[in-house]
């Protein structure tokens, strides 16, 4: 067995195991963490395919941004696992059917016929090209320079718009003013009323 194969099997096994743990884990936070592990394993496989840009983007975007947001939301929501698991056996046949359909579809779309070893030339035989980060960067900063810059301006505009809508300056904010709180005396807040018995005061 070659070293690439060993690495591939380790990462694939890790990906499959952690992906099934996403489903089977009882705690949703743990599920999210396992999903992150799945992403890492997939990124490793992509690295093996010499798609280093995709691998890095997967980690940066999905693990770094999307999953953090996801975890944040999970912690904010109070998810009741027991109610989610209700009817597990009842829906199992249906779920298995959908899964089987999905597998058949995948096998048809990306199976050995179209993506087998006899169709795709192995990486070692393919002509050596520049790394795909270089290729992507070259295209972005030459051919697509104008749209690329415009997209940057668009993002800047979105930031300015969002901040200007939500930002409150110090004077507009609702905040404690400690000195005022301390200076307040009993007489400012409490009004003492003398009740007379037998009369309607209120």
């Amino acid at each position: 067995m070659k070293i690439e194969q060993v690495v591939f099997y380790i990462f694939s096994l890790l990906a499959i195991l952690s992906a099934s743990m996403v489903i089977f884990s009882k705690n949703s936070v743990k599920s999210a963490l396992f999903l992150i592990l799945t992403f890492f394993a997939t990124a490793g496989i992509w690295m093996l395919l010499e798609a280093e840009f995709l691998a890095l983007t997967l980690i940066l975007v999905y693990v770094g941004a999307v999953m953090v947001l996801f975890l944040f939301v999970i912690m904010m929501l109070d998810v009741d696992i027991a109610s989610l698991r209700e009817g597990f056996t009842r829906y199992l046949p249906f779920g298995l059917g959908v899964a089987a359909l999905l597998i058949i579809g995948l096998a048809y779309a990306v199976g050995g016929e179209k993506f087998g070893l006899n169709v795709i030339t192995p990486l070692s035989i393919q002509p050596k090209v520049a790394s795909n980060i270089v290729a992507l960067g070259t295209v972005l900063f030459t051919r697509f320079l104008y749209p690329f810059e415009l997209a940057g301006v668009l993002l800047l505009t979105a930031i300015v718009a969002a901040i200007s809508l939500t930002f409150r300056s110090r004077s507009q904010r609702i905040a404690f003013i400690a000195s005022k709180q301390i200076e307040t005396r009993k007489e400012d807040r409490i009004k003492l009323v003398q009740f007379e018995i037998g009369k309607k005061n209120l």
Partner: peptide, 28 residues
Amino acid sequence: VLVSARSFLSLYLGIELFALPLYALITM
């Protein structure tokens, strides 16, 4: 950007860049 677009890519980016600030301006 919109009036001097020569490809659909810059046309689309122009139209978004023109519309996006308006959403914020309306509530301002």
